[in-house]
Simulated assay, not measured.
Amino acid sequence: MDQTMTMLFAFLESSGIWAPIVFILFHSLRQFLFLPVTVLCLVGGILFGTILGSIYSLVGLTLSCILFYFFHQTMPKTFGKIQRMKEKWLGDRVSFTYGQIALLRCVPFMQYHLLSLIMLERKKNLFSFTKKSFLTNIPLAILYTFFGQSISTLSLSIIIGILATFTILFYVLREKQIRIKWKEFFVEKAS
């Protein structure tokens, strides 16, 4: 990861005034370059600061989601691997709220496009998918860009507090439904 960040820094620093556009392009094409979302957001915080880095990351992540939408629509069989990953990890009847998806996007080991697939199953048209993608990318962009700018000053207790807050918020933002199986609801009477 150090080598990836070093190469990314060198390339972006040499871009001059084109650095924001190159950074946004890196974000939108990062899945083809096998770059993690968190690394790009951290680099954005280091190079551009929290505010501009968050804006650039948010634009790039939204463009990445739009590309995902179009590739999913034009090549649905190619995305079978992500569908199988979803069924394996989460089951076939997973139902996350948008707040939970926003929090899960902040978890570094959570597959970014797996969460995009879950949103795509709920919002089929491009406009609503893009809007929800934009909204669920806001915490991710701000959090990791902030970490990128202030990574050297955070203490272990602050990091543990942030992780505990995420855990509590994930529970609070869950979808509150009760599912009763047909056989349990209509119990047969013993004759």
Score class of each variant (00 low, 15 high):
residue 1 M to H: 06
residue 5 M to S: 13
residue 6 T to W: 06
residue 6 T to S: 15
residue 9 F to P: 04
residue 12 L to K: 08
residue 14 S to Y: 07
residue 15 S to C: 09
residue 18 W to A: 14
residue 19 A to D: 05
residue 20 P to T: 11
residue 21 I to N: 06
residue 22 V to M: 06
residue 22 V to S: 10
residue 23 F to V: 06
residue 25 L to G: 13
residue 26 F to R: 04
residue 28 S to M: 13
residue 28 S to I: 10
residue 29 L to D: 00
residue 29 L to Q: 02
residue 32 F to K: 00
residue 36 P to Q: 00
residue 39 V to L: 03
residue 40 L to T: 00
residue 41 C to Q: 05
residue 41 C to N: 15
residue 42 L to H: 00
residue 44 G to L: 00
residue 46 I to D: 13
residue 47 L to I: 05
residue 50 T to R: 04
residue 50 T to A: 08
residue 51 I to D: 09
residue 55 I to H: 09
residue 55 I to C: 07
residue 55 I to Q: 04
residue 57 S to I: 08
residue 58 L to K: 06
residue 58 L to G: 13
residue 60 G to C: 12
residue 61 L to H: 03
residue 63 L to S: 10
residue 65 C to N: 12
residue 66 I to P: 07
residue 73 Q to V: 07
residue 76 P to E: 01
residue 80 G to H: 11
residue 81 K to R: 13
residue 82 I to M: 10
residue 87 E to K: 08
residue 88 K to R: 15
residue 89 W to P: 00
residue 91 G to S: 07
residue 92 D to M: 12
residue 92 D to N: 14
residue 99 G to V: 02
residue 100 Q to G: 07
residue 102 A to P: 10
residue 107 V to N: 00
residue 112 Y to H: 09
residue 115 L to D: 11
residue 115 L to T: 01
residue 116 S to H: 02
residue 117 L to N: 03
residue 119 M to I: 03
residue 119 M to A: 04
residue 121 E to Q: 15
residue 122 R to W: 04
residue 123 K to V: 03
residue 123 K to M: 08
residue 125 N to G: 10
residue 127 F to V: 06
residue 127 F to Q: 08
residue 127 F to K: 07
residue 128 S to D: 11
residue 130 T to M: 09
residue 132 K to A: 13
residue 133 S to K: 04
residue 134 F to G: 03
residue 135 L to D: 01
residue 136 T to R: 03
residue 138 I to Q: 02
residue 141 A to F: 05
residue 142 I to P: 08
residue 144 Y to I: 10
residue 146 F to P: 03
residue 148 G to W: 15
residue 150 S to V: 14
residue 151 I to Q: 10
residue 152 S to M: 11
residue 152 S to D: 13
residue 153 T to G: 05
residue 155 S to V: 07
residue 155 S to G: 12
residue 155 S to L: 01
residue 156 L to P: 09
residue 157 S to P: 05
residue 157 S to F: 15
residue 157 S to K: 07
residue 159 I to P: 00
residue 161 G to K: 10
residue 163 L to W: 02
residue 163 L to A: 15
residue 165 T to N: 04
residue 165 T to E: 01
residue 165 T to Y: 06
residue 166 F to Q: 04
residue 172 V to Y: 04
residue 173 L to W: 01
residue 178 I to T: 12
residue 179 R to I: 15
residue 180 I to S: 05
residue 180 I to V: 14
residue 184 E to C: 02
residue 184 E to L: 06
residue 185 F to Q: 12
residue 187 V to K: 12
residue 190 A to K: 14
residue 190 A to P: 15
residue 191 S to E: 11
residue 191 S to L: 14
